[in-house]
Amino acid sequence: MSEYTESIIPGVGRRKAASRYRPAAFLLVPLLAILFQVYVPRFIESAANLELPLLVTVYFSLMRRQPIAGTLIGAVIGLAQDSLSHLPLGMFGIVKTLVGYFAASVSQRFDVENPAIRLILGFFFFFFHQFFYWVLSRALLSQQVGFDLVQTLIVGVLNAAVGLPLFVLLDKLRQDDVALA
């Protein structure tokens, strides 16, 4: 990438720089996301379609730009999500581990602060998450669950749309932004 390109595209200079966050953010944001998924659908049934832990995993993986960090973030969030479900531990863990790894790998090649990129990545990883979870359910747990492609696509769009403002909100937690300000 030339210097000219870096000068005319905002933020391109920090494209490959990992964003830093306060440790509390790494702890509380996934916790709140899981809490949202556990608590809110009690009152708003359609909120169960929002996969906030996945979005948080994607965000932190994208912004950390480190596959190892993305892997660990995905594994922890996935296992925490598993532990609050009735299923054996590891289903969400494996899927989100893969999501974190790939998100972090992809972030090294794209401008992840671009809303369009974020929207597309959000949709893609949601679809990947749902599909892979379905595969694992059938393969490892022998569960005869169906995969509704249309519904998955629609919910994927919805999650990607929700992810956009969520990512902007989470950007406020970035420590380097705070330092720049």
Partner: peptide, 22 residues
């Protein structure tokens, strides 16, 4: 291939965990 190694290890660990539970 550190990243890939961590991924594989993590997934294997979870698979073992899952297999143990199942």
């Amino acid at each position: 291939y550190r990243s890939l190694t961590v991924l594989v290890v993590t997934i294997l660990a979870q698979l073992v965990l899952l297999a143990y539970q199942v």
